[in-house]
């Protein structure tokens, strides 16, 4: 029984992997040792049998299609420009919406303490609460009209006439019933803040148009490129 190191040497020798001196030494041992020579013959025969194994032809062609490798048609150089402009315009559009909705709130947030002090401590900076108060203001004025009508029929009515529409009336009513009039003055403070959007609506329209046109251009480029490619 030969050890594995000898068999490894014989296998390498068979493939010409030993250097000249190693080969010479092994050849001398093979000549002197019939058992080693027999192993070499067996290994050579085994290799010969394996080499005799017929090579089979591929049963079909393994050529690849573009779909198989997920290749996309080459796009013209203008394509990234449109892609960039679409992305950039979209980001800008989102920012304009964000700016238009956040900036007035910041303005209102700053106005809220004044409103609170005017009310005598009631309420906070909440937008909806203020709007509710504002919409309730005419009704409150009407109630006040009914309430003040009872004690005197003529003089108070004359005083009440301009109350809902003029500043003068508001001031006078403020003297009589500051609690009811205060929301109306808050509404008047608030209205200019809401109408002053930092980004004009026109810009948003322009950005939207840029997005739509760029997306359309990209779609057309993609379609024409894939049609050409096919």
């Amino acid at each position: 029984m030969k050890n594995f190191r000898e068999i490894e040497l014989l296998s390498s020798y068979l493939d010409g992997q030993l250097n000249a001196s190693e080969s010479k030494r092994l050849e001398a041992r093979i000549a002197a040792d019939p058992e080693l020579a027999s192993v070499l013959i067996d290994l050579r025969a085994t290799r010969g049998i394996l080499r005799k194994l017929p090579a089979r032809k591929a049963p079909r062609n393994f050529t690849l299609t573009r779909q198989m490798v997920g290749l996309k048609p080459p796009l013209p150089r203008a394509y990234p420009v449109f892609r960039f402009s679409t992305a950039f315009a979209t980001i800008l559009l989102v920012l304009t919406f964000a700016a238009n909705s956040i900036v007035p709130r910041i303005g209102m947030g700053a106005a809220a303490p004044a409103y609170g002090y005017g009310m005598g401590g009631g309420g906070g900076g909440d937008d909806t609460a203020m709007q509710e108060a504002a919409t309730e203001a005419p009704a409150a004025a009407a109630e006040m009209f009914v309430a003040t009508e009872a004690p005197s029929a003529d003089a108070p009515f004359a005083e009440m006439q301009p109350a809902p529409s003029t500043d003068e009336g508001t001031l006078r009513e403020g003297e009589q019933a500051p609690k009811d009039v205060a929301p109306e003055s808050a509404l008047q403070d608030q209205v200019p803040a809401q109408s002053e959007a930092p980004i004009p609506f026109t810009w948003q329209i322009i950005l939207l148009a840029v997005i739509l046109l760029s997306a359309l251009a990209m779609w057309i480029i993609q379609k024409s490129a894939s049609r050409k490619w096919q």
Binding site: F4, E8, L10, S12, S38, L43, A45, T46, R47, I49
Partner: peptide, 26 residues
Amino acid sequence: LARARLRLRECLRGFEELLPASFRLE
């Protein structure tokens, strides 16, 4: 490779009658 050839040699010995004369194992 040496180990694989060794094992194949042992395995192919069982199919001696199928092997061509020039490849008969010793």
